[in-house]
Design a protein around this nucleic acid. Structure first.
Lengths: 215, 215
DNA sequence: TTCAGGACTTCACATATGTGAGATAAAACG
DNA sequence: CGTTTTATCTCACATATGTGAAGTCCTGAA
């Protein structure tokens, strides 16, 4: 499959997303943020000013390996995955998510170093994006941005810890069932191949597992 | 084996650790911190004031499950592990390290919630510890503490990411060999059982793997 | 000194997962 | 419309890892 590479999303954005849609998108963002901190009106205004709504068609490579990733992405809707290539040039999917959630190659974005990761929109996606300079402005002038960054890093660290424990203790079948449980609808939108890679299971093996389950 | 539970480490500390030793310990701490941020003289003084040097004999349970963890621990020397009990009451070792490194049940410490984790000094350990109130003082009054917390969370997140990839792609033998590579001396100090649990390998299987390697 | 328990190994066997070569069907494309 | 790709499945076989029982060796407590 040929992936579209990304053109200039801002240009076609205004055509497609109207004000009401944009409002809903920011509402989704703020609901997400409020799970961790109490975001002030002032900071909400900052976000509205600097985060840009974007519609991205399916099978677009939003950011790609070898480049410095330009944006911090918040998935409002749609499924994305994060993958890199191993020594044998095989794609390894390290993350899959259908939002709402931030989905970014954080290290590359913050430190402005080339990434080995690719951000791939599997389905049509609506995103809120912010570039690095604007993100820095929010970080420096927001009331609670620093606090939020700390909390969200902490949160992802805890998720990682959990995932490590699961990889260490659960069988392939259990990991698969757990994924279906926590990501309802994922089967409908994400190719099994990517799910297998994400779970560290061989595609053939996963196929057998699916057969066992349905039997 | 019966684990000692922890008494009052500060009381026997002065007896054992003299000024020169203490100096060396802080030097180790600051070298570690300097890998991530440029710590100021002012902040070094803060650390000297609030971090307490502690000697902990081997097989001590420093913090235990069901309690709110009281200290942020920096391993100057010695091996510690972090473990919890699964549904079958079996110990699962989630982390092993011989320092220098911070070694803490971070979530419990910061949020003052009961932890399901246990911090176990496998060997004699020398630590620098700080309680939560003093840690908060440093966080609020230090020049670079906030920045440091951000950086170290980021660093651990990157490590977790790496470990997830390894669990997903490497065989048990490869994971074992990699551990020996990155943690020289671990075999000498840490029971194979704990290493097996940490790597997500059955002790019997690891034994066979070790046999294959030595052959 | 003896003894009990822990750490580690070994083995035979069970189970889980990987591998590669097709088969099938649907989607993409000219 | 037919052709080509792509995703997925299926199968037989190979390999990796788990399991439980037993054995060896060592160490620490009585």
């Amino acid at each position: 499959m040929e992936l579209k590479s990304q053109g200039m999303p801002e240009t076609n954005t205004q055509d497609i997303l109207n004000l009401e849609q944009t409002d809903r998108m920011f509402h989704t963002l703020f609901s997400f943020i409020k799970q961790l901190v109490d975001i002030s009106e002032h900071d909400q205004a900052l976000c509205r000013k600097f985060f840009k709504p974007v519609f991205v068609p399916k099978d677009t490579l939003l950011e790609s390996e070898g480049t410095v990733h330009q944006f911090h992405n918040f998935i409002v809707s749609g499924f994305m995955r994060n993958f890199f290539r191993d020594e044998d040039d095989k794609e390894m999917t390290t993350d899959i998510n259908g939002g709402p959630r931030f989905f970014t190659s954080y290290h590359s974005f913050i430190h402005q170093t080339p990434s080995n990761e690719n951000l791939h929109c599997i389905t049509d996606c609506t995103l809120l994006r912010i570039n690095r300079k604007d993100n820095e402005i929010i970080t420096l002038t927001g009331d609670t941005s620093q606090q939020y960054v700390g909390k969200i890093l902490e949160h992802y660290l805890e998720s990682s810890r959990q995932r490590i424990i699961e990889l260490n203790t659960l069988t392939a079948k259990e990991r698969y069932l757990k994924l279906l449980d926590t990501h309802p609808g994922i089967l409908q939108y994400v190719p099994i191949n990517h799910i297998a890679s994400f779970l560290g299971i061989n595609p053939g093996s996963l196929s057998r597992i699916r057969q066992e389950i349905s039997a």
